[in-house]
Amino acid sequence: MTSRVVITAGASGIGLGLARRFAAQGDRVAICDSDAAAVADMAKALPDVIAEVADVTDETQMTAFLGRIEAVWGGVDVVCANAGTGGPAGRIEDLDYAAWQACIGVNLHGAFLTCRWAARLMRAQGAGSIIITSSTAGLFGYPLRSPYASAKWALNGLTKTLASELGPAGVRVNAICPGAVEGDRMDRVVAMEAAAGGRSEDTVRASYVTGVSMRTWVNVDDLADMALFLASPAASKVSGQIIAVDGHTDALVTS
């Protein structure tokens, strides 16, 4: 059965991996992303995917993007509130307030705007699956990364609350908590944390492995496998779950 799937921040990283996998199984996919160049590249690589530029923190842009999808499709079956940013690294007393706000804005406010739209349509339909990209940072304390950890803990609370609100209408809401995901984004995070903590990048990178039972990072396909399962009939009774895909993180130790 073909699903209608919307993915935020879908032109690169985890979002692009999700878009590729949903499209590969024959679903209708629409993505937005704030990176115009990445959106253009994706439109060329996946011409059947609706790809538009929109900033998840801008209500006007998101209303326009989501409104166009609603007009074309008439509804939506799966929404992946995937947009996120790592935010600044450092001791809380050294953090800039604007950088804190920007991190909370993308991770939490962007999910709010996306889920608010999805909830309205899915409640009316009496069905749907919302998948929020959280993080293992929403399961542990995360030294030197307080804005990011705070936003991800909030997303887990949002997931639980929306599952309760929307469950009676037949709508499921779950969160995926990735561990350290291979790719350019984590390379930047490692460099940022190394600079903030006065350590080498090799030391920081190693800490992400030693803190995981399976001694491994994860890749985008690991996360896409879980998202496709949560969106499928096989997960018809799975809701309100915060599911780590991380090789089992024991602790986030970065200082």
Rank of each mutant, 00 (worst) to 15 (best):
M1Q: 14
T2G: 04
V5I: 12
V6P: 01
V6H: 09
G10N: 11
G10H: 09
A11D: 09
I14S: 03
R20C: 09
G26I: 12
A30S: 15
S34W: 02
V39A: 13
A40R: 15
P47Q: 14
A51V: 08
A51C: 13
E52M: 11
V56H: 05
M62A: 06
M62V: 07
T63K: 12
F65Y: 15
G75K: 13
D77Q: 08
V78E: 08
N82I: 03
A83G: 01
G84L: 08
T85H: 07
G87E: 07
G90V: 01
D94C: 00
D94V: 00
Y97T: 07
A99C: 00
A99N: 06
A102W: 03
A102D: 13
C103D: 06
G105S: 08
V106G: 00
V106A: 03
V106W: 00
H109N: 13
G110K: 02
F112N: 00
C115E: 08
A127R: 15
I131G: 06
G138K: 12
G141F: 01
L144A: 00
S146A: 15
P147G: 10
P147R: 02
A149K: 08
S150L: 04
A151C: 10
A151Q: 11
W153V: 11
L158N: 09
L162Y: 10
A163V: 07
S164Y: 05
A169G: 10
V173E: 09
N174F: 05
I176K: 04
E182K: 15
M186R: 10
V189C: 04
A194H: 09
A194T: 05
G198A: 05
A206N: 11
A206P: 01
V209D: 04
V209N: 01
T210N: 12
T216Y: 02
N219L: 02
V220N: 07
D222F: 04
L223D: 08
L223Q: 06
M226V: 06
M226G: 03
P233S: 08
K237Y: 09
V238L: 11
I242K: 03
A244G: 06
G247A: 10
L252I: 15
S255T: 05
